[in-house]
Amino acid sequence: MSAPDRLIPSRDDERVFAEPWQAQAFALVLELHGRGAFTWTEWAAALSDEIRAAGPDDDGSRYYDHLLATIERLAVKKRLTAEQELADRRAAWAQAYRNTPHGRPVELGAEPLP
């Protein structure tokens, strides 16, 4: 097992969430758990698997990547959605972003830019 030279990757980590999507993903986990979609033990086990797969060089900065991958996996496993449905929806949002002029709120079903 190799450990980086410095144990503490950064002291400049006082903000709770580095980016808004991290907060949204985190809230999604709590809300789904709060409504009984999965137990916290199930959640911790699934997240642990994801983090273990990241290996010994994981410096903690990709934590929310792991969290998002875990909630996606769990949502499919619990049949809250399906892989295809999720993929279709991602494509729809990607299209909506491309179709929305800068500065406007992005909404699904946005018409292509002229």
Partner: peptide, 28 residues
Amino acid sequence: MALRVKALESLMVEKGLVDPAALDALVD
């Protein structure tokens, strides 16, 4: 990543599995 969260969140909201107001309250 933001797109992936949006995709999952919008599906969960549509299916009535999460409440958008509750998500905002949790973040706050």
